[in-house]
């Protein structure tokens, strides 16, 4: 028996948006900022992105090398576990397929790690196949520090805490290891369409 909130009518999404908004989400035009600590200021001249394989082999790009890689422009919908969704956001970045192209790995999982100590875990299969990017431009301008600039992970098919701000690298692993929010009771995978907000959802 479903509970009904007396007198609640609600403001439904317009029809066109309804099939793009996962359950329990609402659409916003803002870009709210959510971070657990202060915003780190990272200069691009000091910026590095590092892939560490399960055999501890490292592959590192500095900012200039990273910018030499093929860029992709994508327009995606993003969904934050705090309930807001934002439609048609435009990003530019480097596909994880490009970054992983020369890497020998049989790892099934990855842990993204960031300046400031933030981490988040993802299956490697969710980072490949045109589903994930390291993004440095948002709406045609350099990504602002409070939104994760100079560069953040962009994995729009999962809740947005998986799109690690200020991303520094990826550690490829044979075993899944919970990241920051995943250790505080948030869902290990985080599929917005299955409403996997918290552990056990």
């Amino acid at each position: 028996m479903t509970f009904v909130s007396r007198g609640f009518k609600g403001r439904r999404q317009v029809e066109a948006a309804a099939d793009r908004v996962p359950p329990g989400q609402y659409v916003t035009d803002d870009f709210p900022v959510l971070s657990a600590g202060p915003t780190p200021l990272i200069l691009t001249e000091n910026w590095r992105f590092t892939l560490i394989t399960e055999a501890n082999e490292e592959l590192t790009w500095n900012w200039d090398e990273f910018q030499q890689l093929p860029h992709e422009q994508v327009t995606v919908d993003i969904h934050c576990v705090t309930k807001w969704s934002k439609l048609d956001t435009r990003w530019e970045g480097v596909s994880l397929d490009t970054l992983l192209a020369g890497v020998k790995t049989s790892a099934r999982f990855a842990l993204a790690y960031s300046h400031g100590g933030y981490t988040t875990n993802l299956p490697l299969a969710d980072l490949t196949g045109g589903k994930a990017w390291v993004a440095f431009n948002y709406e045609g301008a350099p990504l602002r520090p409070e939104h994760g600039g100079p560069a953040r992970l962009l994995v729009p098919h999962l809740y947005f805490w998986k799109s690690a701000k200020w991303v520094q690298g990826l550690r490829l692993m044979d075993q899944e290891s919970p990241g920051f929010w995943e250790s505080y009771g948030y869902h290990i995978y985080g599929d917005p369409w299955k409403e996997q907000r918290y552990a056990g959802d």
């Binding site: 916003t28 803002d30 709210p32 900022v33 959510l34 971070s35 657990a36 600590g37 202060p38 780190p40 807001w84 400031g116 100590g117």
Partner: peptide, 12 residues
């Protein structure tokens, strides 16, 4: 930074 914990309330 690790002694500073934050929570932000957006305008929405």
């Amino acid at each position: 930074p690790e002694r500073i914990r934050t929570e932000r309330f957006g305008p929405t």
